[in-house]
Structures are given as C-alpha cells and as structure tokens.
Design a protein around this nucleic acid. Sequence first.
DNA 1: GACATCCTAAAACACTTGTTTTAATCTGGT
DNA 2: ACCAGATTAAAACAAGTGTTTTAGGATGTC
Lengths: 208, 208
Amino acid sequence: MAHHPEDAARTRLIEAAGEIFAEQGYESATIREICARAGANVAAVNYHFRDKLGLYGAVIRHIAVNPDLPGSVSEDPEKALRGFISAMLGKLVLGGQGRQWHLRIMVHELARPSDGLPIIVEELIGPRYALLRSIISAIVHLPSDHDTVRLSAHSIIGQIAHYIHGRPVLGHVWPAMQFTPEQVEQVAGHIAEFSLAGLRKIAGTSKQ
Amino acid sequence: MAHHPEDAARTRLIEAAGEIFAEQGYESATIREICARAGANVAAVNYHFRDKLGLYGAVIRHIAVNPDLPGSVSEDPEKALRGFISAMLGKLVLGGQGRQWHLRIMVHELARPSDGLPIIVEELIGPRYALLRSIISAIVHLPSDHDTVRLSAHSIIGQIAHYIHGRPVLGHVWPAMQFTPEQVEQVAGHIAEFSLAGLRKIAGTSKQ
DNA sequence: GACATCCTAAAACACTTGTTTTAATCTGGT
DNA sequence: ACCAGATTAAAACAAGTGTTTTAGGATGTC
C-alpha cells in the first residue's frame, strides 16, 4: 500500500495540523493554512482523512500513542500535585519544543468545544482528570469520585486553564505579567500553594 | 432626529444582540440571527451601528449604564467574597431573567477574545477585577496591586469561568452535575471555601 | 514498456459570513 | 397634499470556509 516513503504527505499534514489546532483551536484552524504549512494541496486532507474532523481525530490518535502521564501517584501526593500543576502550566504556556501541543488542544476544547470533543475527552481529558482526582483523593482522604474531589479537581483545572486562554485579557489588566519562565514558575507555585491550602482544609474537616 | 417612537428597531437590535452575544460570544453570533430575533432587516445593524463591532459596543455601553456592582467592600471581606462568587456564578449559570447577560459576554471574552476585547476590559472586566482585588486585599492584608493579590484574583476568576465554558466537558466527565440551583450553590460554596483557605494561608504567611 | 494503483494539483462547488447597494416606504412639518 | 429626511426591505456583493471534481503525474509490478 505505502508506495511512498512513509506516506510523507500524510505525516506532514498531521504534524502541521497538530501545531495549528493547538494554536487556534479546531474551529478557527483552516484546512488551507494547515495544507500550506504542510506543503500539501487542499484536497490532500480529504483524500487522506476524509474531512477536517477525520484529520482532527488522526492528530489526537497520533499523540495518544506516546502518553506523557506518570503511571501512578507518587509516594508524596502533595509533591505529585505540585508536579502536575507545574508540568501542565509549563508545557502549556512555554510552548515547549517537540510535539506537545496535545495539552493546548485539550485546553482549547475546554474553552470552546467542537465536534471533536468526544475524542478529546476520551483520549486526553479523561486520563488526566482521573490522575488529578487520584492525587487529590490521596491528599484529602476521600474516594476518587467524591463530589468534593471532583469540585477540587475542577478548581485546579480552572485555574490552570484560565492562564492559557485568558492571556490576552491579562495583557490588558496586568501588563507586568509577561509569562517569562520565572513568572510562569511563580504562577505555578501560587496555584499549587493556593490549592494545597484548600485541599488541606478539606482534609481537616472531612477527617473529624 | 428621532422621528420614530424611541427608535424601536435600534433598541430591539441591542436587546436581541445582547442575548445572542451572551449565548454564543462575539465571533459565533451572526448578524442574521440577531436581526431575525429582533424582527429587523440585516441592513439595519449597518444603518444604526455601522458594523458588527459597533453593535457590540452599543450593547456594552447600554448595560454599562446600570451597573450591578456594590459601591464598597462590605465590612466583612470574607462575606463579601462569598457573595461575589455566589452572585457571579448564579447569574452566569442560572441565566437569570432580566438583561443580565453582560457577565456571560464577559466570560466569553475571557475564553476567546474578539476585536471588542478592549471595550469589554474597560467597561466590564476592569471594575469587577478591581472590586475582587480590593476584597482579597482586605483578607490577606496586602496592597491591592500586589502580585499575590493579582494571582489570587485570577485563581478565583479562573474557577468561576471554568464552570461556565467548561459545561459541555463536564457533561462528559461528570454527568451527575446537572447545574440545578442546589448544585450551583454547592459549587459556589466550594469555590468560596476552597479559595478562602488559600487566602487565609497567604494572610498567615505574609503577616509573619 | 505497458498497466493499474496510489497520490497530487488546480479549479470549481456550495455554503456562510459581514457588508453594501438600490429602491421603496414611512414620518412629520409646511 | 406635498416634500425632505429618516427608516426599512430585498437583493446582491465580496471574501472565506469545507468539500468535491477532474485530470494529471508518480511508482512499483508484470
């Protein structure tokens, strides 16, 4: 079947699409821009992936192959939470070399869901949501599907996501925040300590 | 000039546009749908407001006339914070009768900024951001423009906003959350207590 | 070398968007 | 009743979108 060397065009399309989907989100990304970056014709995406949504799914499945999730919660759950927040925020705002745009795609889907939301939820959001809940569960000593654990998970995700898609607004109301690596670390530290205080209080009240 | 009774069409357009902008955001809202709901012709918006952005500005200026912000921080800042969160979340997710869609427009602009962002920041986001920071400032005993106060304000806003535009995702990962009035109150209470724990810890460490 | 198959290229299609044009209609003052 | 100006209505315009068509070129096989 693969008469060509590794289906070069198909691969280039997935890579280019991953970047552009991560930058602009599913709806705003245009097939023409993707094909231009991939050096391919507009018809190529329909030929290889049937339609735009098919390309989206291929991108997700392509990055779902090598996941970046730790297998289990670290021995120290508070340390694990700090790591989770810092890694997520770092990869998101500092871009990060290598094709790690899956997190950005995920956050885009949080803010403005598209037709591909079910795929994203299954492949990207679900696993991270479960991991975060298991970390929180270990901190507050409550089952992973307890309402309070879920609410806390959303509190943490909400804070992280806010710094991603709220960046243009931040530029207006807080011009000093330039998202330098040091500032990003400061933000991650704040979110972690802020949230840990909330979680410790929950742990305290639920133990009684 | 105003030969017509109160410029009926112009007013109807602003009201319909407010609703639709609040539902879908600036970009997704279409002039045709707005005019259909207002019972006006597509050319009316260009005649009365020059273009789509002009209509957007008129909507914002129209609601900026009667603000809903309390004049000053209450005597009890923790109570004020609880009220801020509860009121904001309630108006946002429960919709609320009366033209109170300005908050929803604001949150849309947080998630996906449009050309109208400067207007929204100046008229809507700015005042609320200042109010929230003054509340936090009173709790943590730090100046209103301190980095920690700003970070905390964004932590709280991020949590609230997350429950608005993340609703479709929540439907997937947490089907039990149906946003009934009781559940919304539960969420508001969680955000308030979670955040207050974080703020109290900041107050404690900064006092030393 | 001919052939079937996979892939690519250019153009057109169908649809939606904001915007503009052009003419018709209504309004109030004289 | 008439007229100037304000308002509305219908249609068309221009640009952008995803998608499809149609023909051409490349590649490995016999």
